[in-house]
Structures are given as C-alpha cells and as structure tokens.
C-alpha cells in the first residue's frame, strides 16, 4: 500500500515507458533520440503551463484563463516584433504582461474572495477579446515576423532547441521553488489544510495570489515561444489548451481538491499527453483519436487518485490500528 502511494510518479513513468514500447513495436523509429527530442520540444509549452497550473491547483484554485493569457501575450509579442522591438525587450514584456494578467486573477480571488473558476471563466473571454481589439481580428503571419524572432526558440544549443532548454530550466527552477522555498511549501500547506496554515502564520489569499502570478508569468513567456515556433498569431491560438493543461495535471496526480501534487508528476502527465499526440499518426491511428484517449486517461487518473485518498474513520479499536498500520506499511 505504502509502496503504491509513494510511487504514484513511478506508476506514471511506467505507463509512459509501456506507451513508448507499444509505439516502438509498430514504429521503432519513434524512440530514436532525434524523434524523442522532437516530442519533448513539441510538448514543452504543455509542460511549462502544467507546472503553472499545478501551483494554482495546489492552492485549491483553478486557472481557466491560462491559454487566453498565452494567446494575448503571444499576440503582443508579435505586434512588438512588427514594431521592431528587440527580442530581449519582447521577452521581458511578455513575462511582465503575463504576470500582470495572472495578478488580476489573483487579486480578484484574494481580495474579493470570488471563486477562481468564476474569475478565470470571465478573464478567459476578456483576454481573448482584447486580442481581437488589438488586431481587429487580423493574423500575424510568418512573413511579417523577423527571422530572429522566429529563430530564437528553434535555435539549436548543445543538441537541443532553445525552447526545450527553457522548458528544462523552468522545470529545474520549479523543483527548487516547490521543494526548497517557504513559498513552495506554503502552496501545499494552503491547499492541504487551510486552517492549519493560518495557525502557522501563512496567509491563504496571499499564497493563492502568488500562484496566479506564477501561472500568468509562465503563460506569458510561453505565449512568445508558441507564436515564434508556429510562426503565426491570431485570436484563437491555443484555443482549448487550458483543458489540456488541466488534463496534464490530473494525469500527473495533482489533486483537484488541492494540497497534493509533484513537479515530476505534472511533467510526466504533460509528457504522457505529448507522446500520445505525437505517436498516433505514426502508428496509423487517426490523430483524431487523441482527444478521446486523453479523456480516458483523465478518467483513469482521477479514479486512481481517488482510490488512494479515501478518508479513514477514527480507528478506535487497538488491534485495528495495528492492522491499518501494517497494511499501509
């Protein structure tokens, strides 16, 4: 029992390996390093946003505006590029803008106590609408983007594209943030036991605010990466992506009720979806099956997570206590 609980991540890793093995049986070239790097790069935005969504979900909230934030920041990046602004400034601008959009969500949740699902349901339509207002619905196409703008995320550095390096850096930063800073620990405390968090002097609202700012910042940065990599920006880019992000978290074992989750889990949840998406065409299954498969994966993951977190009674009988302790050991 304890083994299973401890290794939720191990089971997911095993599932990913089995998935890779199944694909390799039909199409061995899929697991060549070069292709795996492609898959990793392709999945980078999902991994980055899954980490952002994870901290929000850890604090018992949800951010449905994360993809709209991405799209808005991506469009702003494209517009700035057309205005001739250098890449460094663009990067800075999208990060700040993303953080501000996240902070707006966070403030409404923290200061006004509005449920996060309502807040982000509203801001998701507002943020997308603003893109339209900025562009009057026009697209920014590849030929309107400067080569540096498009090349930056794709440039190869030590065998990997910059975008993948950025993802790896974010995963590392997150590992430190989550496990080695008071804020990181506070995310778990606030979601796991809000009353006790107050006893230890942690502000629930402030911690939720911080989570939204982090998620927004990541969405802003990813907005630029997305637009530059696909070399196109329009109102509907990354439409519905917020649900893929939530799905990655759920598959990765992040508890929707808050307080439980891990960086490795979120990363692997995103990787699982990324591999499915990339593998379907090569094994000859219609890519249209991807959505149904991710739906089933979500349902299996929820059922699995729920099974391991059933509440126990008081356990009054002494011999029962020993039974339970032995059973879980």
């Amino acid at each position: 029992m304890r083994g299973i609980l401890k290794s939720r991540e191990a089971i997911l890793a095993l599932a990913i390996l089995v998935l890779l093995a199944l694909v390799a049986m039909r199409f061995p070239a899929f697991i060549l390093p070069g292709n795996l790097v492609n898959v990793l790069t392709d999945t980078s935005p999902l991994i980055i946003l899954a980490l952002g969504q994870m901290v929000v979900i850890l604090t018992k909230c949800i951010d449905l505006s994360i993809a709209a934030n991405l799209a808005l920041c991506g469009m702003v990046a494209g517009l700035l590029n057309m205005a001739g602004v250098p890449i460094v400034v663009i990067l800075l601008a999208v990060i700040v803008l993303g953080a501000l959009l996240g902070a707006f969500n966070g403030l409404l949740v923290w200061k006004l106590g509005i449920p996060s699902i309502v807040v982000t349901l509203g801001t998701m339509t507002i943020y997308r609408g603003i893109i339209f207002v900025l562009t009057a619905g026009k697209w920014i196409n590849a030929h309107q983007m400067s080569p540096e703008f498009k090349d930056f995320p794709r440039a190869i550095l030590l065998g990997l594209p910059v975008m993948t390096w950025i993802m790896i850096a974010i995963v590392l930063v997150f590992t430190v943030l989550i496990y080695r800073t008071p804020l990181g620990r506070a995310f778990f405390a606030v979601g796991g036991n809000p009353h006790a968090a107050v006893y230890t002097g942690i502000s629930v609202g402030r911690t939720q605010f911080a989570a939204f700012v982090i998620a927004g910042t990541l969405a802003g940065l990813t907005g630029y990466l997305w637009v530059a990599r696909y070399a196109v920006a329009y109102v509907d880019i990354a439409g519905g992506f917020e649900l893929d992000v939530v799905a990655a978290c759920v598959i990765g074992g992040v508890a929707i009720a808050g307080g439980a989750g891990s960086v490795a889990g979120a990363v692997m949840g995103a990787l699982f979806l990324g591999i499915v998406k990339n593998a379907l065409p090569v094994v000859g299954i219609s890519p249209f099956a991807q959505m149904a498969i991710s739906g089933i994966a979500i349902l299996v993951a929820i059922a699995f997570n729920a099974r391991s977190s059933r509440p126990k009674g008081r356990i009054i009988l002494k011999q029962a206590e020993h039974r339970v302790v032995e059973g879980s050991a």
Binding site: A189, G192, G259, A260
Partner: peptide
C-alpha cells in the same frame, strides 16, 4: 493534529521557520 499530510516530517516541524 493540525499538520500537513503532504509535507515531510521535517517540513512539518519547520514550516514557517525553516
């Protein structure tokens, strides 16, 4: 006991003043 199930023993002891 008002503590945090998902944090480690050491983290529970030191949360707030690690």
């Amino acid at each position: 006991t008002v503590l945090f199930d998902e944090l480690t023993v050491a983290e529970n002891i030191f949360i707030g003043h690690a």
